[in-house]
Amino acid sequence: MNEYYYTPNPDVVHELHTWNYELLGNDLTFTTDNGVFSKRTVDYGSSVLVKNINFDKIPSGNILDLGCGYGPMAIALAKKYPNRNFEMVDVNNLALSLAKKNSEQNDVKNVKIHNSNIYENVQDKFAAILTNPPVRAGKKVVDGMISGAINHLLPNGTLTVVLQKKQGAPSAKKLMKSLFGNCEIIRKDKGYYILESVFRG
C-alpha cells in the first residue's frame, strides 16, 4: 500500500481531523488526514525550528518551506510575518491540498503552494529555505534537500534544517559545512538539532 507521506499520492482511507495549535503567538487551526506527516499535532521539530529562526538576519526576499506537508511551519511564519512571501512545496498532493485548506482557514494569503519533488519545480532564489526533511524517505532524499539549496539561495540567504541527532543530524551538519563553509547548531532541544548555514554567495 502506497501510504507513505513522502509519496505523490498516498493510498489511504481518508479521516480528516481539525484541531487548534498555538504557535508564534497565534491560535492556528489545522486540518489533517491519514497519509500526512504528524497528523495529530505539529511535529515537535517543526515547532522548534519556527521558534528559533531569526528573521532579523535573513535578507529581503521570499522564503521556501521545502517538504511543507500540511503547512504548519510556513503558515505559522506567514501569519506572524505578513510582509514576507512564502513558497510551500511538497511531493505529496494530499498534503498540498490540506496546506491550501489550512492557509485559507487561517486567513494567510502571503503563500504560494505547489507540487515539487525536492527542487524539481522550484525556479526562484530565496532569502531562506526551511525544511523538516522526511527522514523515512532515506538519506539520498534528505541530502538532496540540503545540497540543492545552494542553487536556490540569494546571497546571505540561510538554509535551516531540523533533524534528530539519532536520525542523522551530525552527518547533515557535516554536509552543510562542506557545501556552505559554515554550519551552526542554533538550537538543541530534546534530541532535535536546528542546523543553519549561510550562503555567502
Rank of each mutant, 00 (worst) to 15 (best):
M1L: 12
Y4M: 11
Y4K: 14
Y6E: 06
N9D: 09
D11S: 10
V12R: 01
V12F: 03
V12D: 00
V13T: 14
H14G: 03
T18Q: 12
T18S: 15
W19R: 11
W19V: 10
E22W: 01
G25R: 09
G25A: 08
G25L: 10
D27Q: 14
D27C: 09
L28V: 10
T29F: 02
F30N: 10
T31G: 04
D33P: 08
N34I: 10
K39I: 09
R40W: 08
T41C: 09
D43A: 06
D43G: 08
G45V: 13
S47L: 04
S47E: 15
V50W: 04
V50Q: 03
K51P: 01
I53S: 04
D56P: 04
I58N: 02
S60L: 11
G61C: 11
N62S: 11
N62Q: 09
I63N: 06
L64R: 00
D65W: 02
L66W: 06
G67D: 06
G67K: 09
Y70T: 01
Y70V: 02
G71Q: 09
P72E: 03
A76N: 10
L77H: 03
L77T: 04
K80T: 14
N83E: 14
F86C: 12
V89E: 03
V89N: 06
N93W: 01
A99N: 07
A99P: 09
S103R: 04
S103A: 15
S103K: 02
E104G: 04
N106K: 05
K109T: 13
V111F: 00
V111N: 00
N115L: 11
N121T: 07
V122K: 00
V122P: 00
Q123E: 12
D124R: 00
K125L: 07
A128Q: 09
I129H: 08
L130C: 08
P134E: 04
V135Y: 06
R136A: 08
R136K: 15
A137Q: 08
K139L: 13
K139R: 14
V142K: 00
S147E: 14
S147F: 03
G148P: 02
G148E: 04
N151G: 08
N151H: 13
H152T: 02
H152D: 01
L153E: 01
P155V: 06
P155M: 06
N156H: 11
G157Q: 07
G157C: 11
L159V: 11
L159K: 12
V161G: 07
V161L: 12
L163D: 00
Q164I: 06
K166P: 01
A169L: 11
L175I: 14
L175S: 07
L179C: 09
F180A: 06
C183D: 02
I186F: 08
K188M: 08
K190H: 13
I194E: 05
L195I: 10
E196G: 03
S197V: 11
F199T: 02
F199Y: 15
R200H: 13
G201E: 12
